[in-house]
């Protein structure tokens, strides 16, 4: 403000001079041909300073109270929104990763389970087959034993008959060779001795 006051001193003289030949004209450079260079014309200073103070003051208040909070708010909202979006993107990615892991886990479980089921089935089938085979083998052994027994019986029976047959045959042969009667007991003893 000291500028305005300082120039106010000079202004008092200048407009007075101006008024003498320009009447009610407001002092300005053009009328005083060869006068002051307009920017250095101190008579215009009070007006410029006053209107600058009014306009710039209002401008400052308007920007400070209205415009800057608004732009600051817009920028902050955008920054928050971007941060929030990034967060949710990260969260979604984590969720996707988790579900992929769960899926892999489930797949592994299912595979293990299927293997187990297959193994069980295989074991069951194998056990059943083994049992059946054992049964069949037992039956066969039984039959074999029976057959062997019958063979043995047959053979012993046959062997029993062999003596009689041999006796008869020997009696017949001796009869044919020697003729006459043949002592059956002697033949029997002879056959018996040969067989033993």
């Amino acid at each position: 403000m000291f500028v305005a006051e300082a120039y106010a001193q000079t202004t008092t003289a200048a407009p007075a001079a101006a008024e003498t030949h320009a009447g009610t004209e407001v002092p300005h450079g053009a009328e005083h041909g060869g006068g002051v260079f307009p920017p250095f014309d101190a008579r215009t200073y009070p007006s410029q300073l006053l209107w600058l103070a009014i306009t710039f003051g209002l401008f400052y208040l308007f920007l400070q109270k209205v415009v800057m909070p608004r732009i600051g708010g817009i920028l902050e909202v955008r920054r928050d929104r971007i941060a929030h979006d990034l967060d949710s993107a990260a969260r979604m990615k984590a969720e996707a990763d988790a579900s992929i892991a769960a899926y892999e886990q489930e797949l592994a479980d299912a595979r293990a389970k299927s293997n187990k089921i297959a193994q069980d089935a295989r074991d069951t089938v194998k056990a059943a087959a083994d049992a059946e085979r054992k049964q069949v083998e037992a039956r066969l052994n039984e039959r074999l034993a029976k057959a062997e027994a019958s063979i043995a019986a047959t053979r012993s029976a046959a062997m029993k008959d062999v003596g009689a047959i041999a006796q008869e045959t020997a009696t017949a042969i001796v009869q044919a060779l020697v003729g006459g009667s043949v002592d059956k007991t002697a033949v029997a003893n002879a056959v018996k001795s040969v067989r033993e």
Binding site: T11, T12, P27, H28, P46, S47, L50, W51, T55
Partner: peptide, 10 residues
């Protein structure tokens, strides 16, 4: 006593 007219500058 001060000339504070509304001018083209204002």
């Amino acid at each position: 006593g001060l000339d504070v007219s509304f001018t083209n500058s204002s």
